Computed example of a mutant assay.
Amino acid sequence: MFARTERLLLRPSWPEDAAELHQAIADEGIVRHLARAPWLYTADDAAQAHDALYPAFLLMLRTYGAPRLIGACGLGNYDGSVELGYWIARPYWGLGFATEASSAVVSIAKAIGHKKLIASHFTDNPASGKVLRKLGFQNTGEAALRHSNGRRAAMTCALYEKTLGKAGADSTSMSPLPAFNIRAQMERL
């Protein structure tokens, strides 16, 4: 599955991406805000499995030259709930890429039949909460301890959720281009 936004191409990772992915995420300032990524992040950690119900995407900045990997965004299974997660490489912080990519992934989640998404952010990362609120996630008013592999400790997270309505009824403030299936597009050619 692929998606395109105004500035990004969202695509699955391939084995050939491991070195570039490792270079982009092997930054303690990024990994410390993620629950699942370990620190030290190694090239072996860059391998990602693909799951149609929980797609994960590399965020490729569309340029006139070769696209540049700037982060990742996707869905995961967290205690039976569908969780949105994302990270952006440090040179691209504060430029709206997390919101842009996550908006596309929320649309994909709805298109593949998910009814509700959850998300969280460590309380010392308020920028991530701002992204979630822009996407229409509601703060549940609850907090929970969640283990951070990057910090090797449990940290307090603010919890969010978003109910997904029927296609076209989403309340996100952005309108990404719809996701498309490359196999279906190739069959039409």
Rank of each mutant, 00 (worst) to 15 (best):
L177A: 13
Q23S: 11
G165N: 10
T99W: 01
N125H: 14
L34Y: 01
R68A: 14
D45C: 03
Y78N: 03
L58E: 10
Q138M: 11
E83M: 07
G113M: 08
N181C: 12
S13V: 07
A37Y: 02
A43N: 03
A89Q: 04
R188M: 11
V82C: 12
L59H: 00
Y160I: 07
E187M: 09
G76E: 09
R90E: 14
M60W: 09
D27N: 14
L61Q: 04
E16Q: 15
L95S: 11
M186R: 13
L40I: 09
V105A: 03
A52D: 12
A184L: 12
V82Y: 04
R11L: 09
L159H: 00
T156H: 14
S107M: 01
T99Q: 06
K115M: 06
N139G: 07
A52I: 08
L53S: 11
S107T: 15
P55I: 07
Q48K: 03
A111D: 15
S175M: 08
N149A: 12
E20T: 09
A66L: 02
H147L: 08
G94W: 04
S173F: 15
H147K: 05
A153Y: 07
H33M: 07
A119C: 09
Y78D: 06
H50W: 01
T140N: 03
G74Y: 06
E83H: 06
A24Q: 00
Y64V: 13
R62S: 04
M1Q: 12
Y41L: 06
G71H: 00
D45A: 05
R133V: 14
F97I: 15
A109F: 07
N77L: 09
P178Y: 10
I30A: 06
F2C: 04
Q185N: 06
W87F: 00
A144T: 12
S107G: 10
P12I: 03
V131G: 01
G168T: 10
T123A: 12
A66T: 12
S13R: 03
N125D: 13
Y41R: 09
T123W: 09
M174F: 07
L10F: 13
L164E: 14
N181V: 11
G129T: 02
A179G: 05
S81K: 15
A47S: 10
E100W: 07
L75R: 04
Q48P: 10
A26V: 09
A119T: 00
S13L: 07
A144E: 00
L9K: 00
A98M: 08
L95E: 14
Y92V: 05
P12H: 10
P12D: 08
W14N: 03
A184W: 09
G150K: 06
S102N: 08
V106H: 00
R188N: 14
E161I: 04
T156I: 12
E6M: 02
Q48M: 15
G129K: 04
N125F: 11
C157M: 13
K162A: 11
P126I: 12
A43K: 01
N181G: 04
R4L: 00
A56D: 10
A56T: 10
V31I: 04
A179V: 05
S128E: 08
Y41I: 10
N139V: 09
P91N: 02
V106N: 00
P15Y: 04
A43T: 07
R32A: 12
F2P: 02
W14Y: 11
Y86P: 02
V82Q: 01
Y41H: 06
